[in-house]
């Protein structure tokens, strides 16, 4: 089974996110990108599938800051091929990103596409179902377990409260990974450096076309008071619990 993993770099939330003067975009000067954590799980799940039943793993990402290191890291972890999509510039939202990925996948031989269940900057929806819809293949989101079958996969989708639903999906198809069967492995820097010297990244020119159907009006930090809002009585506490929908 050949698996493609779509990797996306997202703003590192550890940094202070600053909105630029237009008020509609992040200030790129202070922006630091990092691999979407769920995509890291998707990669891990792909590697586990490969280790369990063979096949190739291809990591695909859009050209962006530090993307080479990220792709070499994927190779160091055990991916067989890394594909960098170049020349697209910044893409506007999930929909356009999915379009670019879908086009690039035209040149790749795959059975299964894995990517993270969501990303912190998913303004217009999640990548997995969007790519799937563009490729006209089935998709299931929020996956915590994948088992390879013959021309299909058996997966566990997570609902609230820890209930799982088991599905069987005919391939080719896309899965949005919530968590791999084990935490994403660590690629030692020594190994990444070795791979960097010995392996190469494949490149393909990106083609887009979908500019998204939304526009950003404004980005603002949520209003929060200084520290905790102090409650004076159990009644107030109950009101809070009520508003959070827990009672």
């Amino acid at each position: 089974m050949n698996t493609v993993v779509l990797l996306k770099r997202v703003p590192d939330l550890v940094e202070d996110l600053e909105v630029d003067s237009s008020g509609t975009a992040l200030d790129s000067e202070h922006l630091k990108l990092t691999l979407n954590e769920f995509d890291d799980h998707a990669l891990e799940q792909a590697l586990l599938l490969k280790e369990g039943g063979g096949g190739e793993v291809t990591a695909v990402a859009l050209d962006s800051e530090d993307v080479d290191k990220m792709l070499f890291t994927a190779l160091a972890k055990g991916a067989d091929r890394a594909l960098k999509i170049t020349g697209t510039g910044a893409v506007n939202g999930t929909s356009e990103l999915a379009e670019v990925f879908a086009q690039a996948l035209g040149s790749v031989n795959y059975d299964l596409v894995l990517t993270g269940v969501q990303a912190s900057d998913d303004i217009d929806g999640q990548l997995a179902p969007t790519v799937a819809a563009k490729l006209s293949v089935p998709c299931i989101e929020v996956i915590t377990g994948v088992e390879a079958g013959d021309g299909s996969v058996t997966v566990h989708k997570e609902y609230a409260g820890g209930v799982l639903a088991e599905f069987e999906m005919t391939l080719p198809g896309v899965l949005g990974i919530q968590a791999a069967a084990q935490s994403p492995r660590y690629a030692p820097v020594s190994k990444v450096r070795q791979i960097q010297d010995s392996a190469t990244l494949d490149e393909v020119a990106g083609a887009g076309g979908d500019n998204g159907k939304f526009s950003i009006v404004v980005m603002t930090p949520p209003e929060t008071g200084e520290g905790a809002q102090m409650l004076e009585s159990v009644e107030e506490l109950i009101a809070v619990l009520d508003s959070k929908g827990v009672i």
Binding site: S95, A98, D124, Q126, P129, T130, A132, A133, C139, K213
Partner: peptide
């Protein structure tokens, strides 16, 4: 979990904007 499977797919198939 369920909504994630529906929203994006609908937005692509029915060509609707999505937030």
């Amino acid at each position: 979990s369920m909504g994630m499977d529906l929203a994006s797919a609908l937005s692509v198939k029915a060509d609707m904007a999505l937030a």
